[in-house]
Computed example of a mutant assay.
Amino acid sequence: MADTAYDSEKLRQVITRKRAQAVIPNNPSRALKYPVDKHLYAQRHLIEGCFSGLKQFRRVATRFEKTTKHYLAIITLAATVICLR
């Protein structure tokens, strides 16, 4: 799932090679229009809301943790706090 700004032929080919479905609305300037699953695209707000909630935690937004292992631990902790609210 992506926004209209990410509507490019190259990205669609990469997604197709991974045997996935591209849920990207067509750019208005696109000559060849692709079908879009509007119901699936409407669920995109769940992902956006998750990232927005995680970014409310300063350590996550500014990435104080330098190693991937520690950063993943901070994200897990932040997600747990969000779920417990």
Rank of each mutant, 00 (worst) to 15 (best):
K18G: 13
A2V: 01
I75W: 00
L84M: 07
P35T: 02
L40E: 10
I24H: 02
P28K: 07
I74S: 09
Q43V: 03
V14R: 15
P25Y: 04
S52F: 04
K33P: 05
S52L: 01
E9G: 14
I47S: 00
E9C: 13
K18P: 07
A78Y: 02
R12G: 09
G49D: 00
L77P: 05
A73V: 08
V81I: 12
T62L: 14
H70W: 12
T80V: 14
D7L: 10
L40N: 11
S8V: 10
T62S: 11
K10I: 11
A20H: 10
V23K: 05
P35H: 02
I24W: 01
A5G: 15
R44C: 00
V36R: 03
N27T: 00
D3E: 08
T16L: 14
T68H: 13
L32F: 03
D37H: 04
Y41V: 00
C83N: 13
K18Q: 13
T80L: 10
T68P: 08
V14I: 15
K55Q: 05
A42V: 06
V14G: 12
R85V: 04
L72C: 11
D3V: 13
Q43L: 12
I24A: 02
N26R: 01
R19I: 06
P25T: 06
E9R: 14
I82Q: 03
V14F: 15
K69E: 14
I47P: 04
S29L: 08
A31D: 11
V81S: 09
T4R: 15
F57E: 00
V60H: 03
V81P: 07
R44T: 02
R85T: 09
K66A: 09
L77I: 09
K38R: 14
N27R: 09
L77N: 05
D37F: 02
A79F: 01
T80S: 09
L77H: 05
A61E: 08
H70R: 15
K10G: 07
F64Q: 10
A73N: 09
H70F: 10
T62E: 08
M1Q: 10
M1C: 11
S52R: 06
I47V: 11
K10Y: 14
R85A: 07
G53M: 02
I82E: 01
E65W: 02
P35D: 02
L46C: 07
H45F: 07
R58K: 05
I82K: 02
I15E: 04
D7V: 06
E65N: 03
R63F: 07
K55N: 03
E65R: 02
A2E: 09
F64H: 13
R58S: 02
